[in-house]
Design a protein around this nucleic acid. Structure first.
Length: 426
RNA sequence: GGAGGAAUGGCAGAGUGGUUGAAUGCACCGGUCUUGAAAACCGACGUGUCGCAAGGCACCGGGGGUUCGAAUCCCUCUUCCUCCGCCA
């Protein structure tokens, strides 16, 4: 959620930025500022009434003590009048506050100046292209969903039996590969300074709202009405919310968190060839990294996160490129996002495996996440990124490394996997 | 699931209707003293909001109510603790 202060002080920058999202927000911004003016006015006049009431009440107390009951009763009548006025004023104020909040929730984050203009994924900027030749495959190379059968990696049919479509069941060496990747990612992240957390997979409404999943994306999350809880679409949600409402000392920063969780996404309406196999599923595993930083450091930290994620893909020896998302493709809450895509050799297409974003104060405003700074208490910046999402990594590993006698996995995984290559099942 | 108890500032812990935004202790910060440190002493020390400021207002788990006035009384929700039951 944007700050009204920002809308007032940096109106032109905000409007120009939102233009990159193809959003003409001039009217909305003006309305918000007007509502905020109204809010201040109402609050000030109401406070004046309350101040009078407080003074009179204290006088009444004194009068009673000295036995001057008649005078006290006269004042009581006056206070009762004030009470009526206060009740009316508070009712109005409440309405204005609600309108203000609703209006602010409609506005997405302001894109950073580096964000390219554009309306769709086509317009994303290739920030770092894959430097080499894209690998070519041997004849008869298979896409990962076929390899999954040959090698017994996962089964979507079994998932249908237990649950429904889009819930893969990893089996045998496939399940082991999954566990190997999770451990590898967590080890690398903790070595880079991130503290490991294993958070809850269900979150309450306040939590989902603070990181921006609510109110605009409720359709994306699985919801449990009996307990009013949501299954997390990403570990970002519980991890970032661990610090909701905190007021940190600058010395505690940056806070760096990592966590492995399954992620649940409804992905309503997504069907077809592009979602075959592991390309898009309702439940998948992901290791996430989160940072809470000083405002002036957040873009340096964003670069560091990008470099870190890149190093993981380097070690996995997967061909990848980095995109800087354009205004039209960027998430609602983000100010600047880098997407990592690995090359799926058998499908001949790029698959997104990580998204690294700086939210600046957009989340921390809802989180009420602040630090004690020299200029007073200020909102922190929040950032997060996948390091990494598993299914498409697995798809690319299978497809890119297939050889006549098996699938040779990158060296970093050998220890975790207990072997060098995956072998066909009988 | 059943029965009790509790929720106050960074922590501990007073406070049952009227200068209590909140005693006291600890921690933290500034200072005095000291070669330095410790101890001792002095001072400052919650958050938000409105205001140029002085200062006002709100906040004692959340929400609602009673009252001229609520941390203090009532209702409700949540969380935690103890005991019983159930259970990975």
């Amino acid at each position: 959620m944007l700050l009204v202060h920002t809308l007032r002080e940096e109106r032109e920058r905000v409007l120009a930025g939102l233009q990159k999202r193809h959003l003409d927000a001039a009217a909305a911004v003006d309305r918000i500022v007007a509502l905020d003016d109204q809010r201040k006015e109402l609050q000030t006049s109401n406070d004046t009434l309350l101040a009078e009431r407080n003074t009179l009440s204290s006088e009444i107390g004194t009068l009673f003590k000295s036995g001057r009951k008649d005078e006290a009763n006269a004042l009581r009548e006056r206070v009762n009048e004030i009470k009526g006025a206060v009740a009316g004023a508070e009712e109005t104020l409440k309405g204005v506050l609600q309108e203000l909040e609703d209006a602010l929730l409609q506005l997405p984050n302001v894109p950073h100046e580096l964000v390219p203009t554009g309306s769709s994924a086509e317009d994303n900027e290739v920030f770092k292209a894959y430097p080499g030749e894209l690998p070519t495959l041997v004849d008869g190379a298979q896409p990962h969903w076929e390899l999954a059968e040959t090698y017994g990696i996962f089964s979507l049919e079994l998932g249908v039996r237990t649950t429904g479509s889009g819930f893969p069941v990893f089996t045998g060496q496939g399940a082991r590969l999954q566990r190997a990747l999770v451990n590898y990612f967590l080890d690398r992240n903790t070595a880079a300074g991130y503290t490991e957390y294993a958070p809850p997979l269900l979150v309450n409404e306040d939590t989902a709202r603070a990181t921006g999943q609510l109110p605009d994306k409720e359709g994306q999350m699985y919801y449990i009405p009996e307990d009013d809880l949501y299954l997390i679409p990403t570990a970002e949600v519980p991890l970032t919310n661990l610090y909701r409402g905190e007021l940190l000392d600058a010395g505690q920063l940056p806070v760096q968190l990592t966590g492995y969780t399954p992620c649940f996404r409804r992905e309503a309406g997504s069907y077809g060839a592009h979602v075959r196999g592991l390309n898009r599923v309702h439940q998948f595993d992901k290791v996430e990294i989160v940072q809470l930083t000083l405002p002036e450091e957040s873009y340096t930290k964003l670069d560091e996160m990008v470099a870190h994620v890149g190093s993981l893909l380097d070690e996995l020896q997967l061909p990848y490129r980095i995109l800087r998302l354009c205004g039209g493709d960027m998430g609602f809450t983000s100010a600047l996002t880098y997407d990592f895509e690995v090359w799926s050799a058998a499908q001949q297409r790029w698959l997104e495996v990580s998204s690294v974003s700086n939210f600046e104060t957009f989340q921390s405003n809802r989180l009420k996440l602040r630090y004690r700074g020299e200029r007073g208490n200020e909102l922190l910046h929040t950032l997060n990124g996948s390091a990494l999402a598993l299914p498409r990594i697995i798809a690319a590993l299978l497809e890119n490394n297939q050889q006549p006698d098996g699938i040779l996995l990158p060296e970093v995984l050998h220890g975790y996997l207990g072997k060098e290559r995956l072998t066909p099942v009988a």
